[in-house]
Amino acid sequence: HAATELTPEQAAALKPYDRIVITGRFNAIGDAVSAVSRRADEEGAASFYVVDTSEFGNSGNWRVVADVYKA
C-alpha cells in the first residue's frame, strides 16, 4: 500500500519520525508527490507531508522535502 499524503492540519497533529529529500525532474507537482509517496513507502512510512518544493536553477530539476510519519 502506498503512503498517503496528509493535509496541513493532519501533519500538524502528528510528529514526523524522519524527513526525506528527493531531487529529480518532475513535469508537475503531482509527479513529485508520487515520487515522495514511493520513497516514503519504501521507508515503511504510513503517510507523508510535503514541507517544501524548490526548483534548482532553470534546469527543470526539483528538490522536494517531506516529513514522513509511521501511523
Rank of each mutant, 00 (worst) to 15 (best):
G57N: 08
F26H: 01
K15G: 03
P16S: 05
V21L: 04
S34M: 14
I22T: 01
E55G: 06
A66P: 00
R63V: 13
A28L: 09
T53H: 11
E9D: 10
S54L: 14
A35Q: 06
P16W: 05
T7R: 08
A3L: 08
R63F: 08
F48N: 00
Y49A: 05
N58L: 11
T53S: 12
A46C: 14
D31Y: 02
G44D: 04
D52S: 15
E42W: 10
R19Q: 06
G57M: 09
A12Y: 07
V68R: 00
A13N: 12
I20T: 00
S54E: 14
V64Q: 00
T53M: 15
E55W: 12
N27W: 10
A35S: 05
N27L: 12
R39E: 04
E9V: 08
S59R: 07
Y69S: 03
G24K: 01
G44T: 03
V68M: 13
A40Y: 03
A40C: 07
V33H: 08
F48G: 00
V21A: 05
D18S: 11
P16N: 03
F26R: 00
S37K: 15
K15C: 14
A71W: 13
G24W: 03
A3E: 01
D41N: 15
K70S: 08
A2H: 15
T4A: 09
I20Y: 03
P8T: 13
W62E: 03
I29Q: 08
T23C: 14
V21Y: 08
K70H: 13
E55Q: 13
S34K: 14
L14Y: 07
V68T: 02
G30M: 11
K15E: 11
V50Q: 01
I22L: 08
T53V: 15
K15Y: 08
V65T: 09
N27G: 11
V21G: 00
T4P: 03
N58E: 14
A40P: 01
V33W: 08
Y69E: 01
V64D: 02
S37W: 04
I20Q: 00
D31Q: 07
H1V: 07
D31I: 10
T4I: 14
V68E: 00
Y17A: 02
A45T: 02
S59M: 10
L14P: 01
S47L: 08
A66Y: 05
P16D: 02
L14E: 06
V50E: 02
F56G: 07
S47F: 15
E9W: 08
Y49S: 04
P8N: 08
A32C: 12
N27P: 10
Y49N: 03
V65E: 06
E55Y: 14
G57V: 07
V65Q: 03
E9T: 09
E9S: 11
D18L: 14
R63W: 09
D41A: 15
V68Q: 00
R19I: 10
A28I: 07
R39K: 12
F26E: 00
E5Q: 13
I20N: 00
V33A: 05
A35I: 07
L6Y: 02
A13T: 13
E5V: 06
G24F: 10
E9L: 10
F26P: 00
A28F: 09
A11E: 01
F56H: 09
A35L: 06
D31N: 05
A35C: 09
E9Y: 07
V65S: 04
F26K: 02
E55I: 13
A13C: 15
E43H: 14
T4H: 13
A13Y: 11
V50A: 00
S47H: 15
E9I: 09
A3R: 02
G30W: 12
R38V: 09
D18V: 08
D67L: 14
K15T: 13
V33T: 07
R38E: 06
T53R: 07
V50G: 00
L14F: 08
A45H: 06
T23K: 07
T7Q: 05
S34N: 13
D31G: 05
A12R: 12
A2S: 13
K70M: 12
A32T: 04
V50N: 01
A45F: 14
A2V: 11
V68F: 15
W62S: 04
A32S: 04
T7H: 06
R25V: 11
G30S: 14
K70N: 10
T7S: 10
K70P: 07
W62G: 03
Y69K: 04
F26W: 10
S37I: 10
V21K: 02
P16H: 03
E43P: 01
V68H: 00
I22F: 01
P8A: 14
D41Y: 15
G44R: 04
G44I: 04
E9M: 11
A2K: 14
Y17Q: 01
A46K: 09
E42P: 01
A32E: 01
A45E: 01
V51R: 04
S34G: 09
V33E: 04
V33M: 13
D18K: 15
A28M: 08
N61V: 14
D18G: 15
G60T: 05
G24T: 04
S34A: 15
L6T: 01
A40M: 04
L14Q: 12
A35K: 05
T53P: 02
A13H: 13
